[in-house]
Design a protein around this nucleic acid. Sequence first.
DNA 1: TGGAATGTTGGAAC
DNA 2: CGTTCCAACATTCC
Length: 247
Amino acid sequence: MPEGPSIVILKEAVQPFIGKKVRYASGNTKKVDTSLFCGKTVIDFKSWGKHFLICFPDITIRIHFMLFGSYRINERKETSPRLGILFEDETELNFYACSVQLITEPLDAVYDWTADVMNEQWDEEKALNKLKQRPHMLACDALLDQNIFSGVGNIIKNEVLFRIRVHPESRIGAIPAEKIKELLVEAVRYSFQFLEWKMEFTLKQHWLAHNKSICPRDNVRFQRAYLGKFKRRSFFCTNCQVLYLKD
DNA sequence: TGGAATGTTGGAAC
DNA sequence: CGTTCCAACATTCC
């Protein structure tokens, strides 16, 4: 569920709910008083990376699906929803096992839209500058940094590094400028590719590195390790992915 | 079938 | 004060 492209799919799916008025909201969320939304009209749905945003005129609901979250549109699961919204026309949105938060400030004050790899305001130049400020950072950590590559998750990280042939433990400051450019371009390109494949239900079969045991380029066994400060699974080939270390 | 996983947060430890 | 580590959360899949 949770990487950026999946949230974009959700955002598209709920477009028909824009303009609908909430009849009743409930759920087992402890963070938010669901009665706040009753009678309010949805004016928009937005996303920032892995954040899904339900916008009302004065407040916004922020949903983060974490690792296990899920949703149903005009359907219900057996389990009780973390947040369920029933609209006046009897349609409904249900969210499960997710983090729910209320945002009262203007969204532009909360979110840097230029950091979201799937947003039309994505700014490669700004991302490049953020990378330049952290030369000591590992490539695998950089891709997972939501302030630089909002929406990128562990799958996208592994696929991007494999595609551009960069070892996950490479230091950002040691990677040649052309490779950094490739990193920036591929993070966006693969995210949209992920979106297409996910919609076709063919995402997994297109994985080249993530969850794979053999490198498809040279038939060598992939290394598998929990790398970087995030300690997330990395799949990488020491044959074709270059380790850049020196400055 | 137990363990691991597309993720983040908050607090402790250093 | 920054960083790093860890538990917690809670579901699905192999």
